[in-house]
Simulated assay, not measured.
Amino acid sequence: MILNDDGSVRQLLRDGEPYDRAIRLEPAYAIVSTYFRLSASNIAGLAGAADDELRRFHGIQAFLMALTGVEAFTNVFFTLRARETGDDALKAIVDAKKGSLLARLERCVERAFAASLDDQEALIGRLRELFAMRAQIVHPRWDPASATIGGFIPLHIDGLSMNFQSSFEDERLCREAFLWCLLLVIRVAKAAGAGDVAAFCRFWTGQENVSEEAVLRQLGLGADDAPGG
Rank of each mutant, 00 (worst) to 15 (best):
R81A: 14
D5T: 14
A30Q: 10
L123F: 05
P140H: 04
A28Y: 04
L12Q: 09
F113I: 10
L130W: 09
R24K: 14
L25E: 05
N75L: 03
R111H: 05
Q120C: 07
A92F: 12
H58P: 03
E129N: 15
E129G: 13
L80V: 12
A72L: 04
R104A: 02
E26L: 02
G45R: 03
A122V: 12
V138S: 04
M65Q: 08
R104N: 02
I124R: 04
R111N: 02
G45T: 04
R21M: 02
L80N: 14
T79C: 09
F78R: 05
I93E: 08
E71R: 08
A103S: 12
D95L: 12
V76N: 01
R10S: 15
R107M: 15
A103D: 11
P144G: 05
L117P: 02
D51M: 12
I149M: 13
A92S: 15
N75I: 05
A92K: 15
A44I: 08
T79Y: 06
V138P: 05
A132V: 13
A89C: 08
L25C: 03
A92C: 12
I124E: 07
L105I: 08
L64H: 09
A122H: 14
D15E: 14
K91G: 15
R134S: 07
R14G: 11
G150M: 11
R141C: 09
L105K: 04
A50N: 11
H58L: 03
M133H: 14
V76F: 01
A40I: 06
G151C: 03
Y29D: 07
E71Q: 12
T34N: 11
I43C: 08
D143A: 09
C108F: 13
L90H: 02
Q136Y: 12
N42L: 05
L101W: 02
T85I: 11
R56E: 12
I60H: 05
A132M: 13
F77P: 04
M133G: 11
V109F: 01
T79H: 09
R21G: 02
